[in-house]
Structure formats: structure tokens, C-alpha cells
Amino acid sequence: MVGDASDPIIRVRDVSVRFGATKVLDGLSLDVKRGEILGFVGPSGAGKSVLTRTIIGLVPKVGGSIEVFGVDLETANVTARRAVERRWGVLFQQGALFSSLNVRQNIQFPVREYLHVSQRLLDEITVAKLGMVGLRPEVADRYPSELSGGMIKRVALARALALDPELVFLDEPTSGLDPIGAGDFDDLVRTLQRTLGLTVFMVTHDLDSLHTACDRIAVLGNGKIIAAGSMADMLASQHPWLKAYFHGKRARAVVG
């Protein structure tokens, strides 16, 4: 863990991604600093998830460079890649829980792969993680098909956090949660950021989350970052989409 705190943990430079003839990302640049919670917003279909998946390395890019923890995943060898992958956790939009494993096995899966700890500690950590995401220990024996949408989100978050990563990617973490659950979730992200020094890259449409949890907000439009800054910057911006987004009917209730 070299480099000081101001070093960006994710450095995206001039990244372009295209699917066939459509350009989804067009020369996008973005820095995520160590220890911050970055909220990532943009219209539906603008490519928020695509950027997340490109950073993680699931979508190939046609140009530009991406460094995570100072490692360019495209040129890095397998060992370096594995080392980086062990340091991040990913929460997919649909949860992406392993359907043939129960909740306990889902959460223990990454831990078992990377750490040689006793079954007792594994079970205790599972209960702790479930508690952290607001689930009761009884859920541990259920299978993903027996969970509600919100519970799937929480279990997936518990799995993403299983190894206590330094960086987590959250793709719409609070969608499908009730407002109280979403609020708890924001508090949890805050707590983890404070205690573990967690860096969070969060794609979200939840204005409450943007308000309470995020340090910085980046806005994606036309394949580029059209604005990045604090909530106050966003509210002050004159960009038409930003105005509609942060001063719309739903936003007024939050901003007041």
C-alpha cells in the first residue's frame, strides 16, 4: 500500500467503449481518491454500469487506460490482477448471488478461497456481516431463490464486503430497498468508510444516498463526465440535466 492518501485509487483516462457502432463511453476521464465515497449518476442507459464493468475489466475498452491501485489491469499479469481483485468487492445490480449456494456459502465463498481460517471464524464472520447489512442470522440457510429482492441486495453486499476490501463498487445498491433500509445502508457505508478507510464507487439514483453518503458526485452524459464535485456544486450547476435531476419534483423533497 504505497502512495499517500491523495493518490487516486482509480485513475480512468480517455476511456472509450463501443458496442458495435454505438459509442457508449467517449474519452472519459475520472479519478476516485482513496477513502472517498463517489456517487455516480446519469440518465438511464448513459453507460454508468458499463463504466463500472469496464473498470472491473468485464467490458473491453477500445481506447484509454484504467489504473486501479496503480495497476493497469489490461497489461498486468495474472498474479497482479488477482492481488487487485482480492482488494475490491463488487455488488452487481441484480445481486449475482450463486444460485446453487445458500446465503452462508455465498458469503463464505471468497473468504474460503483467499484466507485459511477456521470454520468457526467463518461462521461467526458470516453472522457479523449479515448483521452489518441488517439481516438476521436465520437467513444464512436460505437459498437465493427464497430471498426477496431487497434481501438479495443485502446478501450481495455482505458478500462484496466479505473480505473487508479497500474498494467497493456498488451498482445501484439502494434500489429495491425500503427507505429505512436504504438509510441504514447509507449509514453502513459511512461507518465502513470511516473505520476501514473504504473507498466506494457507487452508481446510484437515490438522492438521499447522494446527500447523506457521498463525498463527491460525478455525472455521466454523452459518454463523458459532464460534472464532478460536491452536492453544493451540483445544486449550483446550470447544466439542464443536472438542474432537472437535482431540482426536480422528487429532489425538492430531499433538498427542501
Binding site: E124, V127, A128, M132, P137, T191, R194
Partner: peptide
């Protein structure tokens, strides 16, 4: 102070749930 909230969090973990 940084760690106290994390410790509070694990303190809430119910005992012998398995």
C-alpha cells in the same frame, strides 16, 4: 474513535447463531 463504530457493530452480532 475511528474504530469504535466498527466495534459497536460487531458487538451487536448475536451469539452462537449457527
Amino acid at each position: 474513535l475511528n474504530y469504535s463504530s466498527l466495534v459497536d457493530e460487531v458487538r451487536r452480532v448475536p451469539a452462537s447463531a449457527v
